[in-house]
Amino acid sequence: MVHWWVGEGLIRGRDNWTATELGFDYLSELVSRCLVEVVHRRGYDGRVYSCKMHDLVRDMTIQIAKDEAFCSFDEQGRQKLTQDSRWFGFTSDMDPKSLKKSSRLRALILQSSTPVSLWNVKSLMSLRVLDFSYCTIELPSSIQKLRNLQILVLRRCTKLHPSITSLKKLIILDLGSCPLQYLPHGLEKLIYLQELSGFRVASQSNTQGCRLNALLGLKQLRVLRMSINNESEISEDEWNVLSQLEKLKVLAIDAEDCKEKHVSQMLDRLLPPPSLQELYLRRYRHEILPKWINLKHLSSLQYLCLEDGDISNFEISSESDQDSNGTTWVLEGLCLKFMPNLILDWNVLLKDMPILRYAEVSRCFNLKNFPYPSDKPAVWKKNQD
């Protein structure tokens, strides 16, 4: 929803805040005014993950949307497409040809589970948001004609055309669930990109794939979700790429269950961004954490998530205690899920993380002194007992 607001131009970044960050702040304001009801929010900082409207508020919103020509609805409450529509949710029972008359359309979401092809884009030149979350698609070269596109979501894209790098105004590119082997060359051209999901580290032998050093051109990047596998390669001159992304706040790494030793060695050599606030490490099949996960390199980290891994040692304070002049972690949130080999004393962890106030724990059978059963999912909150 925040992405829709940004794409429609209702929110613009200011000062050091991106439009997306401001959008979440505005959403919290709507919640505080009882205009939006929270369904689920993140535990450690309260960020809203999903929400809903009361029926009366929804009726009022629909009426305002009609008056402002934001979107239109028929007598059954279903959205209908008109020449003045700026936002539209396309479903499988609709005729794609109807989009030819929608030159003012700025945001389009395809709510169809059946494979579709992208229609003639000449009628969609005003699009700022294009969301294919619910359908399978092969993205054609004609996508490059959507010069105003700022947000592109392709959750199940089976083929990505290199012309995607021509979308110079993109600020969000989500390829999170796409079964792609690599991203095409030219990613560094997207200099306004603030959020990138689905980046795959290619091998040196892959002449078509995008290498890690392509990220150096993305100086505005705030969120990066990347994956690494047995074929990935990170050369010596790429070890410090992430450390040069000075605005990066969120980093998620999916190791894709790789057990080869060279995978852990590659991750060991990386240097993290200087202002990282959130770190996610998933499907990491090695006993020891990457060497840079310590207080020396992550002094601003507020949230750490370790999920579905074989980590047994959680020695994140030994090196940092010697180099940090007595300072401690500023972690406020912690997530430990499906970590059956993890050996950890909860009381010791709380000493290393004195301001920790929220934790999610699941399937960590060797966690000692945790106040809840280790065989069931649990949420710990500071001073709740």
Rank of each mutant, 00 (worst) to 15 (best):
I11Y: 05
R14L: 13
V38M: 07
V38T: 13
G43D: 05
R47W: 08
R47L: 11
Y49R: 12
D55Y: 12
T61M: 09
T61R: 03
Q63F: 14
Q63N: 14
A65K: 03
E68W: 08
F73I: 11
R78V: 08
R78W: 04
Q83C: 08
S85H: 05
S85Q: 05
R86V: 13
W87M: 10
W87V: 15
F88M: 00
D93L: 06
M94D: 07
D95F: 02
K100V: 01
S102A: 15
A107I: 10
T114A: 09
W119G: 12
V121M: 11
S123D: 13
L124E: 03
F132Q: 03
T136G: 01
P140N: 09
S141F: 13
K145A: 08
L146V: 10
V153K: 11
C157W: 04
P162S: 03
I164S: 02
S166W: 09
K168H: 12
I172S: 10
L175C: 08
G176K: 09
G176L: 08
C178H: 05
C178I: 02
Y182V: 09
L187V: 07
Q194H: 10
E195N: 12
L196K: 07
V201G: 06
R211I: 02
A214I: 03
L216A: 09
K219Q: 14
L221F: 04
L221W: 06
M226S: 09
N230V: 11
I234H: 05
S235C: 11
S235N: 03
W239T: 14
L242N: 09
Q244M: 14
Q244L: 10
L248C: 04
L251G: 06
A255T: 07
H262L: 05
Q265R: 14
M266Y: 04
D268S: 14
R269V: 01
P274V: 02
Q277I: 01
E287H: 11
K291L: 11
I293A: 01
I293S: 00
N294E: 10
K296I: 09
S300P: 01
Y303L: 02
L304E: 07
L304N: 04
S320F: 05
D321A: 08
D321N: 15
D323N: 13
T328G: 00
T328Q: 15
L334K: 01
K337G: 01
M339P: 03
P340V: 01
W346P: 09
V348K: 13
V348A: 10
D352L: 07
M353R: 04
M353P: 00
I355V: 15
Y358C: 14
V361K: 03
S362N: 15
R363H: 13
N366A: 08
P371E: 06
Y372P: 01
P373Q: 09
K376P: 00
P377S: 07
V379R: 07
W380Q: 10
K381C: 12
Q384C: 02
Q384T: 05
